[in-house]
Nucleic acid binder design. Structure first.
Length: 514
DNA sequence: ACGCATTGTCATTCG
DNA sequence: GTCGAATGACAATGC
């Protein structure tokens, strides 16, 4: 879709907005033409720039993690400036000598498509001081006037398309040190996702993610000097109508096809185009980058495996795959990566709190790397018959067979160890309960024994008293008392009681013993 | 720095 | 003999 007339970009975007409104998007504020909005944007930027200059102290603080762009007044980290300059250099050849028409989307031609330029325009009331640029493939009548720093901002906006941020948090730690800045990049990654790129986030997921981020952006402080211009651009959208943001961007197809301007990047060197580190800190940063590189590879393969079985693995985000890489190349590289991970280098110490899922993630990464047809859960959870059937149905390589059986063995053993420990724990609990019951039983026996001993002692005492009482009442023929030392009382089975001399009694007892 | 608890993994035994 | 479950031992990690 080309527009050759001056000012046509305004009508195009306005038409897009009108279409959105026609689709039911409510517009609470009076409609502001895009050109006016762009002018406001530029004025806001100028004000921001002036504020930065006034706030020398704050600038000093901000410059601790970034550099001040002399043209825009934005604070950019070094890496961004380098990358921005890189893309500027790539696009410098397209700088024309006269004002240009807006860039519009021609996806077939892979042309640039930019939002309405913030450059000079008497009709739109935009500020002056622009440096005209034109996209590739545009003829003399299809020229675009783009403010240089706006182009730089849009390059930054499009940068995630080609460099991918495997892990926003890691990116934040590695490059920015500023949460807001990293949010800007995350938003840029979302807002600039080409809908027609199969490697990018689909529109539904993008909209969902976008909704979350736009809500946050509405609450964001727009006076921050760290916010990049494209974030301001997006925030202006979200201020007007957060639900309108994506549709506006999508319907007007404000996309930035940068792939055509990017040279092939050697994957084994750097996907981020970082020069060899000169210092230790740079070397550490390079280590982060290399780590992201490896992670990116896994994620590249993830998109491949999703084609095989989309239900097995879940995507971790929007990842760009270098178009120069074929799937076979990726698979071969993934195999080497997986092999290296399995055999060579010991895993680096994971972050605190990552220990619990380390093993599972490790297996999942290997499964992704080798494109196993089953998820780790399925590999472990399937019955033996189902597992063998699944393995038999899918023609797996030797490496895949080894890996899938290792994953199953480890997973089974892991569950077995867990159940074993649970059983051991339960057994210990049962044994402790049994010990407690036995202890109580023993205590009861002891108490009963003591009670019995006491009763026996009392009985013996009573018997002794009774014994002497009987002897005290027994008299021989002469009326003399029987001595208990010389006589004893014997109770027979027939109920009679006999008084026997002790010698006879002892003789009798000896005779009855076996 | 040290001890303890938890978890994963390997080797081995058992059914 | 094979296979899966069970378990002891060990290492890594977190607290």
């Amino acid at each position: 879709m080309y527009c050759s007339e001056k000012g046509c970009e305004t009508s195009l975007i306005d038409t897009s907005w009108q279409q959105d409104i026609g689709l039911g998007v409510e517009w609470e504020e009076p409609r502001v033409p895009f050109c006016e909005w762009a002018g406001e944007m530029q004025r806001a930027r100028k004000q921001e720039q002036g504020r930065i200059r006034r706030e020398g102290e704050g600038q000093g603080v901000l410059l601790t993690f970034g550099n001040l762009d002399q043209e825009t007044g934005e604070i950019l980290p070094d890496c961004l400036l380098q990358t921005s300059q890189y893309y500027l250099d790539l696009l410098e050849v397209h700088v024309p000598e006269r004002p240009c028409a807006p860039l519009v989307d021609t996806r077939e031609n892979n042309n640039y498509l930019l939002p309405e330029p913030l450059g000079e325009s008497s009709e739109t009331g935009l500020v002056s001081g622009t440096e005209p640029l034109t996209p590739p493939h545009s003829d003399s009548t299809e020229i675009t006037q783009v403010h240089r720093d706006t182009l730089a901002d849009l390059i930054e906006l499009a940068r995630p398309l080609t460099q991918s941020l495997p892990d926003t948090a890691k990116f934040k730690q590695t490059f920015c040190g500023s949460e807001e800045l990293s949010h800007s990049f995350l938003d840029a990654n979302i807002h600039s996702s080409p809908l027609d790129n199969p490697n990018q986030m689909n529109s539904t997921a993008c909209e969902e993610t976008l909704s979350t981020h736009t809500q946050r952006d509405v609450c964001q402080d727009h006076t921050s000097t760290v916010t990049l211009a494209h974030t301001l651009y997006q925030d202006e959208f979200t201020q007007k109508d957060s639900s309108h943001t994506f549709s506006s961007l999508a319907d007007s197809t404000i996309l930035f096809h940068i792939e055509s301007a990017i040279e092939p990047v050697a994957l084994d060197t750097s996907l981020y185009g970082v020069d060899p580190p000169a210092s230790q800190s740079e070397a550490e940063e390079a280590g982060h980058i290399h780590s992201d590189h490896t992670e990116l590879f896994d994620l590249c393969l993830l998109s491949d495996s999703e084609e095989v079985e989309s239900s097995s693995f879940q995507s971790c985000g929007t990842k760009a795959v270098p178009t120069q890489l074929t799937q076979n190349t990726l698979h071969e590289e993934a195999f080497h990566l997986s092999s290296r991970a399995q055999t060579a280098s010991p895993p680096s110490p994971p972050a605190r709190g990552a220990h619990r899922n380390r093993s599972t993630c490790h297996d999942e990464q290997h499964a992704r790397a080798l494109c196993l047809p089953l998820s780790v859960d399925d590999i472990v959870g399937l019955s033996a018959d189902a597992f063998n059937e699944a393995v038999g149905d899918n023609e797996l390589s030797q490496a895949q067979l080894v890996l899938i059986r290792d994953i199953r063995r480890r997973g089974k053993n892991k569950m077995a160890a867990q159940s074993c420990r649970k059983r051991k724990l339960d057994k210990m609990v049962d044994l402790e309960a049994e010990v407690e019951a036995l202890r109580e039983k023993s205590e009861r026996g002891m108490r009963e024994r003591e009670s019995n001993v006491r009763a026996l002692r009392e009985t013996k005492q009573k018997l002794r008293k009774l014994y002497y009482k009987v002897f005290s009442q027994l008299r021989d023929k002469t009326g003399k008392l029987y001595s208990p030392r010389e006589y004893t009382l014997q109770h027979s089975s027939n109920g009679h009681v006999y008084l026997l001399p002790r010698t006879a009694h002892m003789t009798r007892q000896a005779a009855t013993r076996p």
